[in-house]
């Protein structure tokens, strides 16, 4: 037995970690985070009373309450199950992955998660949300003494609206902030209501194609009302939301004033030859939650 395995046996009883992850999944699927609830319910005042947009936002508000009260999935598409985990050096990430995967199986049996993992060639559903690439784990080490785990459930409807642009682009412009802005607004235009708007965008400027998409999705871990520390990006985020909300697309694409709730932009360095703008479209049913855990797997703090 390796030294690492001995460590995890000693410090992390499986049942505690399993129960914590299962509860985290339940909360993620059934309780929309407060920052999202505030943004989506607050948007209703901007819409004309009795309009289709008003109807949509009202139903959304009712749905948030019903899911929370009934401990039931907010949306039937419980999406790609994404784990973002930070652990101290020496922590057994393999054991964490096994236990979290088991928690996903149990959450599926309990109906917190839909059976959502399908073999890409045969079309066969594994029935328990596990299989090659499901669930998804992103592990990082850090110098903190505790474990942080964040879970995002990203549905297929909004995932299908993700786009990656390569600049310069004949219709959208050059390798500059104007080109980036036009690309993001093109994504909003093409998505219309199909990504279950009002949407939230995670954007990465730069990187390679793979890391660009990954980092764009990680922007969605930010709080909706945070401020980007880079003033240039903060301004771009605000401008994109303003313009998107003047497009008239509205909730569900019904027409109206609420098209985007937020846009979160980060950057990665790029090659001289490449300039990608990668966009992750998130639906209003923006399910992300997190927890800080001690080394025994107990929740010490709930995040979001």
């Amino acid at each position: 037995m390796s030294a690492t395995a001995q460590t995890i046996d000693r410090i992390s009883p499986e049942t505690t970690l399993f129960e914590s992850i299962l509860e985290l999944i339940r909360r993620t699927s059934t309780q929309l985070p407060d920052d999202v609830v505030r943004a989506v319910t607050g948007a209703r005042k901007n819409e004309v009373e009795g309009s289709n947009a008003d109807f949509a936002l009202n139903v959304i508000g009712c749905n948030i309450g019903l899911a929370r009260e009934g401990s039931l999935p907010l949306c039937q598409d419980t999406g790609t199950i994404l784990f973002y985990v930070h652990t101290p050096a020496g922590y057994d990430q393999l054991a964490f992955e096994e236990i979290a995967t088991e928690a996903v199986r149990t959450a599926t049996k309990k109906g917190y998660l839909r059976q959502n993992s399908v073999d890409s060639i045969t079309g066969k559903n594994t029935g328990d949300n596990t299989g090659p690439g499901s669930p998804v784990f992103h592990f990082h080490q850090w110098r903190e003494p505790h474990v942080e785990v964040k879970v995002m459930l990203k549905g297929g409807g909004c995932e299908n609206m993700n786009v990656q642009y390569s600049l310069p682009h004949p219709a959208l412009g050059d390798r500059d902030l104007n080109g980036v802005e036009n690309a993001i607004l093109d994504c909003v235009l093409q998505a219309q209501g199909q990504g279950c708007g009002p949407g939230i965008l995670g954007v990465c400027i730069g990187g390679d194609r793979g890391t660009g998409y990954g980092f764009a999705k990680e922007q969605l871990l930010r709080l909706l009302d945070d401020a980007n520390p880079d003033p240039v990006l903060a301004e771009l985020e605000e401008r994109v939301v303003d313009k998107a909300n003047q497009s008239g697309i509205g909730p569900m694409g019904f027409g109206g004033k609420t098209t985007l709730l937020a846009c979160k932009i980060g950057t990665r360095n790029r090659l001289p030859a490449s300039f990608f703008v990668s966009i992750a479209y998130m639906c209003w049913a923006y399910r992300r939650r997190g927890a800080e855990l001690d080394l025994s797997g107990n929740v010490t703090e709930w995040l979001y």
Binding site: V59, N63, L66, L72, L74, Q76, W284
Partner: peptide
Amino acid sequence: HAIGGAAQVCAASIKRVDGVDWMDLGSP
């Protein structure tokens, strides 16, 4: 057009599940 994402509001109108076909395609 129903309201996307509003799975509980929609489910509240579903009073019964009377049957299922083509389950070989997977539940969803």
